[in-house]
Write a protein that binds this DNA or RNA. Structure first.
Length: 424
RNA sequence: GGCGCAUUCGUCUAGAGGCCCAGGACGCAUCCCUUUCAAGGAUGAGAUCGGGGGUUCGAAUCCCCCAUGCGCUACCA
């Protein structure tokens, strides 16, 4: 039986397109990782695009946090808001005229229509439907407005939205690389989603299609909650006569109790908290890639370079994983104790000592006596460090009252000065 | 309510018709090492592969139904 999963061939351009509405959580990092890995493994480009089309939810500083989180995790981009590129700008709020132009073009083509329905009245309709256990209306009444009604509304000059006009007939299908199957939707079940809001900003649906096309995105990778809106996007590609990209919907990471996808309200999910606590980016990368992807039946510990080489889009699991940091803690300790060199570990632990006031930056420069003292302590205690933030507590008693032992005495009982020197 | 996706040890996973009365890892337990705590080593418990029907000589793997979970159903992404 032919059950071979299609794999990628040809050029590859993948993007990660977060919206700056808060800190980046680990689930977002993982989606970015899969996209980045796809670009790197298949020899393509990775693009970062900021989808800041919701003025109400915009959070100051979120873009910086998100870029810092990505970079910490070892994910860099070839094109993006700060590094530039041939398709700049990479921030959607700076591309507004483009969306506006296409939205109106779609209206002229008969693929979309203007609506003067207010958000309030639509809300009333939806609530009434819900109260009757009926599905909310898929179409807006302006879809079937007469030319006279439209002319009258235009003359009034009131704000309007532009909505997609989904066909009533037929169905839309697409192959999904991760699900490894063709997913089909009846067009009559897909709603006439808003493309352009009354404030002139595009919705995700319009902006994502226009930008993915403009930026030459070949593989649309995103979280799986977008599966249901993919037929809308495909409709847009068809109306505009643009070539369809391939789709790959990555499963979500669920909350620890399995109830719902990870959200920013959950604890232990902020990426920046992980580096503040002293998790290593290598361990985080390794752990995160294993949440939904595997190389084979045994290999788990892999460097980023090995993962890039071994990655395959078709080995991403279609089912969601629960967020559980148990194994991350083990892996972090393993990297600290067995993969990092003592010197590397020492350097990384130093900032935590500075923060705790146990060593100042000037008195513990690499190579200094104070540094070597600390390094000897690290060599002695590294096998019990799980996260770097524990280091001050673990080593504090070596610094009480500026007490300083002779470095030569800081030896494990089964060790001698030579073995310690060699280990560092 | 409608539509879509998912379902293998507590958790992450291997598995693409016979290699599987299901393998690995984390966690857990016991033992070894050890003055202690870790780390390390060894052993073990732990999944009738969500349930039920098919197809087949043979199914965790293919098909159907059901259940459950998740997602979407916003002028949020």
């Amino acid at each position: 039986m032919s059950n071979d999963r299609a794999d990628i061939s040809g050029p590859v351009r993948v993007r990660f397109a977060p919206s700056p509405t808060g800190f980046l959580h680990v689930g977002g990092v993982r989606t970015a990782m899969f996209s980045w890995l796809t670009a790197r493994h298949y020899g393509g480009q990775f693009i970062l695009r900021i989808e800041d089309t919701d003025q109400k939810r915009y959070v100051e500083g979120a873009e910086e946090d998100l870029k810092a989180s990505l970079r910490w995790a070892g994910i860099e981009w070839d094109e993006g808001p700060d590094v530039g590129g041939p398709h700049a700008p990479y921030r959607q709020s700076e591309r507004l005229p483009l969306y506006n132009q296409y939205a109106h073009q779609l209206v002229e083509m008969g693929c979309a229509y203007k609506s003067w329905s207010s958000a309030e009245e639509l809300d009333v309709e939806r609530k009434a439907a819900a109260a009757n256990h009926q599905p909310p209306p898929l179409r807006d009444r302006w879809r079937i407005a007469t030319p006279e009604q439209i002319a009258a509304a235009e003359a009034e000059g009131k704000p309007y939205t532009i909505r997609l006009k989904m066909p009533e007939e037929g169905s839309t299908s697409f192959y999904d690389f991760v699900k490894n199957e063709t997913i089909t939707f009846e067009n009559s079940r897909v709603d006439d989603t808003v493309l352009l809001k009354s404030d002139g900003y595009p919705t995700y649906h319009l902006a994502v299609v226009i930008d993915d096309n403009a930026m030459g995105i070949t593989h649309v990778m995103r979280a799986e909650e977008w599966i249901a809106s993919t037929p809308k996007h495909i409709r847009l590609y068809e109306c505009l006569g643009w070539p369809l990209p391939m789709f790959a919907h990555v499963p979500n990471i669920l909350r620890p109790d399995g109830r719902g996808k990870l959200s920013k309200r959950d604890g232990d999910v902020k990426t920046n908290e992980f580096w503040e606590k002293g998790y290593l980016p290598e361990a985080m990368f390794n752990f995160l890639v294993l949440q939904g992807w595997s190389y084979d039946e045994k290999t788990e510990l892999m460097s980023q370079a090995e993962i890039v080489e071994r990655f395959s889009l078709t080995r991403i699991q279609p089912s969601p994983a629960r967020w559980d940091i148990n194994k991350l803690n083990w892996m972090n300790g393993h990297y600290i104790n067995h993969i990092l060199t003592v010197d590397d570990l020492t350097r990384r632990a130093l900032p935590f000592m500075h923060k705790a006031g146990l060593l100042t930056e000037v008195e513990a420069l690499p190579g200094d006596d104070e540094y070597l003292y600390f390094q000897a302590i690290i060599a002695l205690l590294k096998d019990r460090i799980k996260v770097l933030s524990e280091v001050p507590d673990l080593t504090g008693y070596f610094f009480v009252d500026h007490l300083k032992y002779d470095r030569a005495l800081l030896l494990g009982k089964d060790k001698n000065a030579i073995s310690v020197a060699q280990a560092s």
